[in-house]
Amino acid sequence: MAKKSKKREDRLSDLPDSILIRILSMLCEDTEDSKKVVRTSVLSNRWQFLWMSVPVSLEIEFPDHIFGPPGKWERDVLDYLISTHRELNYWRSCQKIKKFSVVYDTRDPERFVKDVDLWVYFASKLANVEHFKLRCEDGYVFPQFAYKNTSWRKLDIQLCTNLNPLANVDWSGVVSLSFRFIDWTDGVMEKVLSGCPNLECLELYQFLGVHCLEISNAKLRKLIIDNSEIDECDLSLEILAPYIQNLKFLGSCRRIYLRNVASLVNVVLDFDFCFGKEDPLQRKECTCLKELFHDVVHVEKLELGPRCIQVYSYSSLSKIKKKNQFGTSYLRLNFLG
């Protein structure tokens, strides 16, 4: 009678790498669980380097400045920085990082700028990051070295008020750009767009300094603009975008002009009007909305927010609908709830 082998069978380790990596990917779907993937390297020689092939998501969120015993916050920050820099040293070995988020919101923004620069350097030069999100306190200067990167596919920058590339921008891998609370200076938007030849989606939220948005990127099909929380009454925006197919407006409707948008197919107008008080600004917004209706009569699908419906009656929309060059059967009016 044959003796049973004393060696314990490890069926899990016998699986192909692709399946094991898939299992590890499910383990680290939560950002906080990413460290568990690295710990699997101690299981055996078979698992030692598998974690490097798992796309992970990482997040750095600066500790809040809360009240406590003297020196406690400084000690917590120091411990956090030491731990973060140590961890990033081995995360750079990953073949791909799906998302890397840096949230830097503190009452003493200038004190730790060098640390933020190191995190941006990690995202732009050391690691293969696919989606980089940076939210910084007002006044942070986006470093010049970060304007050269080909691995990013999605870039999200918030509250970084100083964007000023001194040379040409090279974000050739980026297909989606999102900017929030940015005060643009002359020529910067043009440099950014020219450095993103593969850009497909552009999102601008709460921005200032851009009065003419000329988009010549042939692959860019989707544009989202939200200028809510912007109080400048003289805010105006002219858009020239011959390749845009999907356009969405949110926020306030103030002197928005569409030029050369013949490729538009879907348009969403979801402006927020201040009803109940008759003032010149309100009348300007209503006039602007009516002009926008005429600029998009050629689209196939038009979606309206509840405030827009109040401004322009359905009967008036029906008149525009009849002017559509495709005929009434192609212009579909949807009302957003």
Rank of each mutant, 00 (worst) to 15 (best):
V37T: 07
R255C: 02
C233Q: 11
L118W: 09
I66T: 11
R111W: 05
E59S: 13
N162F: 03
E285Q: 14
V120I: 15
R111Y: 08
L240P: 02
V103R: 09
K6T: 14
M189T: 06
T150M: 06
S263Y: 06
Y243A: 10
A218Q: 14
I239Y: 04
W91D: 04
Y314S: 12
P69I: 05
E200I: 01
S13G: 15
R86Y: 15
E29R: 13
V192E: 00
L20M: 14
L43Q: 07
D76S: 08
L208R: 11
V175P: 01
L213I: 07
V54D: 01
D30R: 06
S53P: 05
A241P: 06
L12D: 04
F179K: 01
V129W: 09
D156P: 02
E32S: 13
C201H: 10
D270G: 03
L289T: 00
F179H: 04
I157M: 04
L204G: 00
E9T: 13
C253P: 02
Y121H: 10
L81N: 09
A241Q: 07
D231C: 10
Q325D: 07
E59D: 02
D186A: 09
D105Q: 14
I60C: 03
V174L: 05
R22D: 14
C286N: 06
L81Q: 14
W152C: 07
L58W: 05
F181Q: 08
W119Q: 08
D115Y: 13
V38W: 07
E29L: 15
A123Y: 03
L134Q: 04
L126K: 09
R86H: 14
K154Y: 09
P165H: 07
L204W: 01
W171M: 02
K4Q: 11
P143Y: 05
S315D: 13
K148L: 09
T106P: 05
L118Y: 12
V192D: 01
L24H: 02
D170Y: 10
C28I: 07
E130Y: 13
I82L: 10
N164K: 12
T328K: 11
S151Y: 11
L223T: 04
S316H: 08
N168C: 06
K191G: 01
C253N: 03
E87I: 15
G68L: 08
L240R: 15
Y330K: 12
H211F: 11
M26F: 13
I19L: 15
E110M: 12
E214Q: 11
P109I: 08
D105M: 06
I244T: 14
K319T: 13
V102C: 15
P55Q: 08
S318K: 14
